[in-house]
Design a protein around this nucleic acid. Sequence first.
DNA 1: CCGTAAATACACCTTATGGTGCATAGCGGC
DNA 2: GCCGCTATGCACCATAAGGTGTATTTACGG
Lengths: 226, 226
Amino acid sequence: MKPEDGLAKPAAASRLSLAIVEDEKEVREGLKYLLGLDGRIRIAASFSRAEDLFGYLDGGGRLELVLMDIHLPGIDGIAATRRLQASWPGIIVLILTIFEDQDTILDAIKAGARGYLLKNTPPDALLEQIISVCGDGSPISPTVARRILEEIRRGDTGGRTADYGLTARETEVLRDIVDGLTYRELAVSRHIAASTAKKHILHIYQKLNVSSKAEVVRKALEEKLV
Amino acid sequence: MKPEDGLAKPAAASRLSLAIVEDEKEVREGLKYLLGLDGRIRIAASFSRAEDLFGYLDGGGRLELVLMDIHLPGIDGIAATRRLQASWPGIIVLILTIFEDQDTILDAIKAGARGYLLKNTPPDALLEQIISVCGDGSPISPTVARRILEEIRRGDTGGRTADYGLTARETEVLRDIVDGLTYRELAVSRHIAASTAKKHILHIYQKLNVSSKAEVVRKALEEKLV
DNA sequence: CCGTAAATACACCTTATGGTGCATAGCGGC
DNA sequence: GCCGCTATGCACCATAAGGTGTATTTACGG
């Protein structure tokens, strides 16, 4: 029962191998200290960027669990989780962040996060939830929550169309963006001013919780918004 | 056997209802004149922009066939074909363009074009191919070609991964772009200079035959390049 | 009749992007 | 050893894009 291929194993004999991905040094060091106090946890590594985590794993590093921040330089925590689940599906990802909006949470879960903790979680609760996620629980209300997450994810892959409250006009504009039009072309296409097209695009960004065409195209295609 | 819902019907009793989408006035008028000479064809409408075609159809216009250019202001002919097939699947789209590169042709076919003609096609051959596409043929070598097209399209929806000759590095960069990174973030992520990241991105654009992040994200996701 | 939301539009600003040209280093094949 | 390809890097440029603020008109619900 030795750790292999970075796969998680039941937290039994040895200590839980854990890595932290968090860009703020103070928070990162604080977590290392805090978690290091617990005999059931071993801090295998900590990184300020998700890319470094991948480097560690590519280099043969073994992990059972990753504490992942969302706001990160470069690849954000959501995308990092997605990649991690694709290449090392056995590694459990626990999001630890200050963002608590529904969209971000859902995105993280869809990306494959096993739990989602807020940074204001009390130290002792944090510890217990990290341990519990290796059993049959999922932080955010143990045991029960896990089934809810699975349901959401299943619904997503099954082709459910999320509702971001886009207006009819915004949906049209979104289609144009996905078709690769610039905001100028879009404006001509829809018989509106370029400035209006921009305004629509920005509204769409806010509603979909993104900030670039690349992201909006991805989200629109993945969630079948067009 | 009257035309209904913009659906195509066997070219039998009445004349073939056809629309032209072509931005160059000379070419458009030339086609109208040329095709109008044939008693089997009725030029129902002609447009300089694809958007106007949709306006015509939304307004109740009936069509059996559309001659579609690719280079168009606003929505290009490929995207227009995709939309047309989504909303009016009965309308046959014939691409008529000067582009003869493999990628553009495949894109058009995947979008649902029934045939692909080059603008240097002799007038009489053009006429015959327009007529033949309503039967059981597909321009670009009648009868036989049609099965080839269907096979390509089936293969595509079935999850085949096209090969655009991307290098390993370019594939990595492509993943980053799809994940919504800017070229600066990408550069940090891959430990290269921002200028190099840009260079890679531009190479990817050339290979995938696109010219913006929005387009490259769409193509990468649709063709499962990542 | 009023408030809200949507759609429209313009100004202004910073940064990102797409495009081009050029150059160097490493690597594999002929 | 030379050629071609890849990866890398830099400079320069025009335009697109992202972000913020303000404002008008229309439409719908209370």
